[in-house]
Nucleic acid binder design. Sequence first.
RNA 1: GGAAAGGUGUCCGAGUCGGCCGAAGGAGCUCGCCUGCUAAGUGAGUAUACGGGCUUAAACCUGUAUCGAGGGUUCAAAUCCCUCCCUUUCCGCCA
Length: 426
Amino acid sequence: MLDLKLVQKQPEILERNLKVRHSKLSIEDFQKLDGKRRALIAEVETLKSERNKASQEVALLKREGKDASARIAELGGLSDRIKALDAETEEARQAVTDWMMGVPNIPDASVPVGKDETENVEIRRWGTPPSFDFEPKPHWDLGTNLGGLDFERAVREAGSRFVITFGWAAKLERALINFFLDEHEKQGYIEVATPFIVNRATMTGTGQLPKFEEDLFRLREQDYYLIPTAEVTLTNLHAGEVLNEEDLPRGYTAATACFRSEAGAAGRDTRGLIRMHQFNKIEMVRFSHPDDSFNQLELMTGHARQLLEELELPYRQIVLCTGDMGFSSAKTYDLEVWLPAQKTYREISSCSNCVDFQARRANIRFKPKGGRTQFVHTLNGSGLPTGRTMAAIIENGQQKDGSIVLPKVLVPYMHGVECIEPAKGK
RNA sequence: GGAAAGGUGUCCGAGUCGGCCGAAGGAGCUCGCCUGCUAAGUGAGUAUACGGGCUUAAACCUGUAUCGAGGGUUCAAAUCCCUCCCUUUCCGCCA
């Protein structure tokens, strides 16, 4: 959520923001709602002030042993009027909050203005896409042929956009989780295990609710939601808390399952591991001093890049334009990994600086020495989803006979296995 | 699931028969004094949000709200009543 004062006092900034982010909200609506809210507050507070004064008089009279019944009688209708006005005020307040909750974060000045993903800007490339003397196969064919990925049984047990892994593939995923967590720990992150189910307040804190309810899985009959990313649980770790300045910056990492309804993605990436209802992801979250958060974004993105480099996976880094950024973000870098079968780079990590947008919603603050408490800045980044990483490893490591050479760093995690071979005589 | 006790400011912790309680006291923190330095001592200060005034803005002044959340009783609720959430302990049940 943005700062209310900013919206009130500098509507031109907001107007520009709504435009570059293609929001349909209008500033005039806000001004009407906010005007109404303020008028009601002024009115009801005047009445309350009256009531408080009168109550004190009554208290005084009683203490002096005098009769206060006349004064009390005068106040008969006041409380009822206050109650009615209070309800109206609350409604007006809620209307303003609802409006504010729908406003996306303001992009940083360094973010390119653009309409959609076609206007994102590539800023870095690493590695060379492997060349093959045969037609590279998609990971779903390779993985299925090697007996590791089973989409058919997953459909039977759950539905589309699920996968069941067997043997080497299940182990590979476990290896990746351990490898990623180990690396993040070396990079200074604190490893955390969090719930996969959270309440409404938590989902609201990071910005998934109220606007994006249809993207989430919700538990039946309860106000519980399955997390779409550990960003939710990690960022909310400090919800409502006041941190010490010397605690900043601080980083957390967690490996969790992630659940996404993928509403609106019908027909996209229907095959393979790219877009699942359930997947595992290792997430990084950082809490930063406001003055330092954009440095922290560079640092954290570097942490994600390091993983891809250690896995020897070619990638490029792009900065998302205003039209393609997420709701809560002020600046986002995406890392895209090379997928040989599609002959294209696909998103594998997204690192965002949300500045104070989530901190304001979740009320995460810090107290500078001698200064007023203020909101921290929050950042989050994928320290890689296992599914997409496995897809990249499988496709980039494939050989003509359908076997897959694994990245060297994973060999110890795979207990010495260097290559996934087709079963003999099959 | 049953029973009991609780949830107060950055933290700990008082709040009697509802009424000068935004809330005693302590710790911490900030600023000053003192001390050769540190420790100790000593004085003052130390919540947040929103409305209004003033202002370029801040500071400031003023009002309102906030003692787990929501509702009720009352002229008036941290204090009484109801519902819910959470914590602790005991019992039951299941891993």
